[in-house]
């Protein structure tokens, strides 16, 4: 049967489940794996995960909806997450959103017609001293100005990454990149 997970991803699943005393414990990492695979957590993926963990699909869905970091709809190839919490807001979240809109023509929740960029607003990303900031996929971009923002977006669009990146800060670190 077709799966929402690639062969390689499927092979990682037993290992992930084995890390937890209770199967259910593997729910968040498996959802994350699904998101890595498809860019979002599809219904198919939720059902498959439910099957592995002896949960019902509604139980998986409930967890997915609790966390803002799981996308329930397909998103652009590059997910721009702009921090809107207090520190960043004071130093220019609104400006940053405006610059992105000027550059890409999208507002929060929208995706560019070419399917490359999706814009979201999120709560504090832990770079409160270096706002305004945004995260694009796994990379942070801090102390943003309009020029810097334009450059980041151009680079990412062209090459998928930008040397101005200051991340990723991930734990546990992804297996290998």
């Amino acid at each position: 049967m077709t799966s929402a997970f690639s062969k390689a991803a499927q092979e990682r699943i037993p290992g992930i489940i084995a890390r937890y005393a209770e199967k259910r414990g593997a729910l968040l990492p498996l959802l994350w794996l699904a998101q890595e695979e498809q860019g979002y957590v599809s219904e198919e993926a939720m059902k498959e995960i439910a099957g592995w963990l002896d949960l019902t699909p509604p139980q998986v869905y409930e967890t997915v909806t609790f966390y803002t970091m799981y996308n329930r709809r397909p998103i652009g190839k590059y997910h721009i997450q702009v921090c809107r919490s207090l520190m960043c807001a004071l130093v220019g979240t609104d400006n940053l959103l405006g610059w992105i809109h000027a550059k890409l023509g999208i507002k929060t929740g929208q995706t560019t017609p070419d399917g490359l960029f999706t814009l979201s607003q999120v709560e504090c990303l832990g770079s409160c001293g270096t706002g305004p900031m945004m995260q694009i996929n796994d990379d942070y971009y801090e102390r943003l100005t309009q020029d810097k923002t334009n450059r980041v977006l151009d680079d990412v669009k062209r090459e998928g990454k930008c040397p101005l990146a200051t991340g990723p800060f991930m734990f546990p670190e992804p297996a290998q990149k």
Partner: peptide, 20 residues
Amino acid sequence: DVKALANAARSTMTEIVHFA
């Protein structure tokens, strides 16, 4: 032991739903 209902989303907008 059916587990058909989910407590979706959070805070004020919590909502009782079935799967997705």
